[in-house]
Design a protein around this nucleic acid. Structure first.
Lengths: 250, 250
DNA sequence: TAGATTGTTAATCGATTAACAATC
DNA sequence: TAGATTGTTAATCGATTAACAATC
């Protein structure tokens, strides 16, 4: 019963559980960094922000990695979850659209430390080709296919304006990419077998606004007029990758 | 039966529906910009990337804004949804943490056009005070309370490193903020009544990696240079009061 | 053994979907 | 009227939760 082999059986993990595994992984890493070797489901649940019943139920889909009466070995469980997710090895990723958001993503150190390696930054604007971002030279979007095949890229990130998103997705798919993380505020359609996940900043804020409105109920809210948009930066820099982009930002 | 008044009754809209309303709103805006005045649930569902049964069920929680045999008036439905969400007026927002991500968020034009107005950019680094970002001067984090009260800010965005997130959240809450959008890869806890939504880039990629790994099944994946990373972590955490996820998938 | 905690069961709750009567 | 499409019902499906037997 090697960890790798026999666990390959009819494991069908619910989507809701899959979405939480990375949360548990992060919580376990935090515990490990705090010097904690063992934890109970209650401890881990607290660190992950869920209730312990849900946590145990989730973990039960992976197997029995705990010890009754004792709890879980932090490092062991961490490895098992990382293996289940598939981040015990790095995944090469390309980012298309080196605008403000693309810049931020390229500089985000969390990718590197969590199982991903940005192998290229692409932008459709030829003017940007060669520009260094996070230590990587931006390349032209037309190089997507070459780069994707060369590095066997399966995951692509779209950080272009909405208008370019579908075209970028199409070309990613043509280049062999089968998982897409879309930051552009647009619905993109892809062939069967290709996964798309979407992150939309405005939508998140709108969901908060909905609840906020209901809290405010009848009472009037302040309507001052403040500054408007601004721009931020942050994040760590990545490194050793190639860059190239397309599009602008989101 | 004024639009505003009587619809204030015992409307209890399921969370899953609330999370899709902004998607419908965006799709309607796109249709309107395309010169389309009327659409069927099928048309709108396609534009929004959902199936029409779900769309009609969702809309039914808001009221009866369509016409049997005809469809929906695009502008009318758009207004009704915007009103339901609460974005017929702008919400003042503060962004804390002006690093790469904060910069990108500050420059994001989508906020402005979708019901939000960034009234302040704050950073704990005094060196950044006064720096212009997206046409706005960065101010010190200590000014949070003053600014939040002055502009009646109810929504705050955290774009700091994980280590600072909880402190920022605490101070936001103390300043009267009751809705937080957290980009820091950390679980934050807040008092009852405060909503937190979380966007975690690494978690989204990890969810894609999980599915990608299963697609690859037994077949070997390009291992240009297999790094070993066994350290993934991170996730979408919820907490405190409400939680929410991001992204959808196909 | 006694205490602690997992892994699982079963009940509950919420979301999705197909089908269709209502009605334009 | 005939055709089209909404709004709603009811069935199904999936996720959450509490409780507890298994077992360290």
């Amino acid at each position: 019963m090697t960890a790798r082999s026999s666990s390959e059986t009819t494991r069908v993990i619910p989507e809701a559980t899959v979405a939480r595994l990375p949360v548990y992984l992060r919580a376990l890493t935090a515990l490990a960094e705090g010097g904690i070797r063992t934890c109970s489901s209650e401890d881990l649940a607290t660190a992950a922000g869920v209730n312990s019943a849900k946590l145990r139920k989730d973990l039960s889909y992976l197997g029995s990695y705990g010890t009754r009466g004792v709890g879980y070995d932090v490092d062991y469980l961490r490895y098992q979850i990382a293996r289940e997710i598939g981040v015990t090895q790095d995944w090469p990723v390309v980012i298309v659209g080196i605008g403000n958001l693309g810049h931020a993503l390229a500089n985000y150190s969390g990718f590197r430390s969590r199982g991903f390696r940005v192998v290229a930054l692409l932008d459709a604007d030829a003017e940007r080709t060669g520009e260094m971002v996070a230590g990587v030279a931006v390349r032209h979007f037309d190089d997507l296919e070459t780069i994707a095949r060369e590095h066997a890229v399966a995951i692509g990130v779209i950080a272009t304006p909405a208008a370019a998103a579908q075209d970028v997705a199409d070309r990613m798919v043509a280049a062999g990419v089968t998982s897409i993380l879309n930051f552009a505020p647009a619905v993109i359609s892809v062939p069967e077998g290709v996964d798309v996940r979407k992150v939309d900043l405005s939508i998140e804020l709108q969901i908060l606004a909905y609840h906020e409105q209901r809290k405010a109920h009848g009472q009037a809210r302040g309507e001052v007029d403040g500054v408007d948009g601004v721009d931020g930066v942050d994040g760590v820099a990545v490194d050793g990758v190639e860059v190239a982009t397309v599009g602008g930002d989101s």
